[in-house]
Design a protein around this nucleic acid. Structure first.
Lengths: 244, 244
DNA sequence: ATTACTAGCTGTCGAGTAA
DNA sequence: TTTACTCGACAGCTAGTAA
């Protein structure tokens, strides 16, 4: 069984059926129904006509495809539920495949309006000085808040294993400011910035905060709800033994 | 069998095994080997420990994963060949899933330097005037050439079914200039432009030419080899019968 | 030409168990 | 604790064939 995490919409869908659904996707059965005979589908799947027929029947019963049988073939379209089943696999793979270059991680998140405390912290001179010195840019006074998808936690765990740029905390007259760490990155493959992770953060793990030398919302024309891609490259660790 | 088109690198890989490989991907077995016991893997796959063990063994024999057996679990890593098998499915789905909003198509292509004849054609006053009038912008005198991936032909076929903006040909003193059609689009979700398809093109189908009101290479900081995303939205067809 | 049923075969699964 | 073997059970496959 293909265990689809969470809602169980695809509960009990066998791998065989998933691949038949996948083949229908490649035939373009999402942009409206596509005319396909069981014989041709069987050819594409590398199985018998009978199996293709059975698969379609089962997928229809599960509500993952809709069919209109007619002479000379049937019209097959993937339903919303069917697309969900395929999307789930696609998006789960996304971060890993896109970032599969050596030592690269790719995250995608949705822009949202945070509590706007980012600017308060970034503008603290002690933080700001450290950021400028250690990141090589003077941060724009505000952070871009991203809400991350579900399947990113394993990736996040990999990131935790990477060397980070340490930002020290400090104590003002009134209160204590905690430390944190930064990971330099590229926003939408275009603008340099850094992921900021406070040691003690107000947000949960499903949120990422990004700083950059520019106002990212303006520079990239971002609105709440837009998707943003973060590309992180693991820094080369120059071991002391290694010969240059 | 999961029929993987082309090179046959994953020839004969059964759907069951593909999903086991997929589960390993989600565990992060691409960023170095991951420690996992067959019991835990079985839990994630929803199958027995024996099956998980058998799957790993088979995947290893096929060269799709590498293992280092040890006490208290084994270290499993996906090989390059294994990642290819997963990537193939991922990239095949990409265009369809990303563009699965009603009437949306998404293409991704690689920037390359064309024969630079685009500017010659676009600068022809008769073409240029039509483009300005029908597209609503004055095109930059040059085209962005994209080399498309393998699995995009079905999508391209869907696009052929969409209404296009017709560009008429003409005849100068010296020679004849053929007609073509345009499809408005968004480049990298950011800059408006249009796909230009000549009725008789010098390139094969695996190439797309994009025009825009600005120099796309400059505006988006593109170099040869960069990936560019084209988002096309099917125009609403206002049928004469329909009531507004 | 289609789709899909029945019958029999094959391959996959998982409990038991060994190492 | 691991991994992985044997083997009975059965899900999924294909050939033949009907509609």
């Amino acid at each position: 069984m293909v265990e689809l995490s969470g809602d169980g919409s695809g509960e009990g869908l066998s791998p065989y059926l998933w691949f038949t659904l996948y083949e229908l996707l490649l035939l373009g059965a999402v942009s409206g129904a596509v005319g396909i005979s069981t014989t041709r589908l069987a050819g594409l799947l590398g199985c018998s006509q009978q199996s293709a027929s059975r698969h379609l029947k089962l997928l229809e019963e599960m509500g993952l495809v809709s069919r209109r049988l007619g002479a000379g073939g049937s019209l097959v379209g993937i339903t919303g539920a069917g697309l969900d089943v395929l999307s789930e696999v696609y998006f789960a793979m996304k971060g890993w495949i896109e970032g599969s270059g050596e030592g690269t991680l790719v995250f995608e998140g949705i822009v949202f309006s945070g509590m706007s405390q980012g600017s308060y912290y970034v503008s603290q001179p002690f933080y700001r000085g450290q950021l400028r010195e250690k990141l090589g840019f003077d941060p724009f006074l505000g952070t871009l808040n991203l809400r991350m998808g579900e399947g990113y936690l394993e990736q996040r765990r990999v990131l935790e294993g990477w060397p980070a740029i340490r930002i020290e905390g400090f104590r003002s007259e009134d209160r204590a400011f905690g430390g944190g760490r930064c990971y330099p990155l590229l926003v939408n493959d275009e603008v340099e910035g850094a992921l900021v992770v406070a040691d003690r953060t107000a947000y949960d793990l499903s949120v990422m905060e990004v700083i950059a030398p520019v106002n990212l919302r303006e520079r990239l024309g971002l609105e709440d709800g837009d998707t943003v891609r973060l590309t992180l490259q693991m820094p080369d660790i120059v071991s002391p033994e290694a010969d240059g």
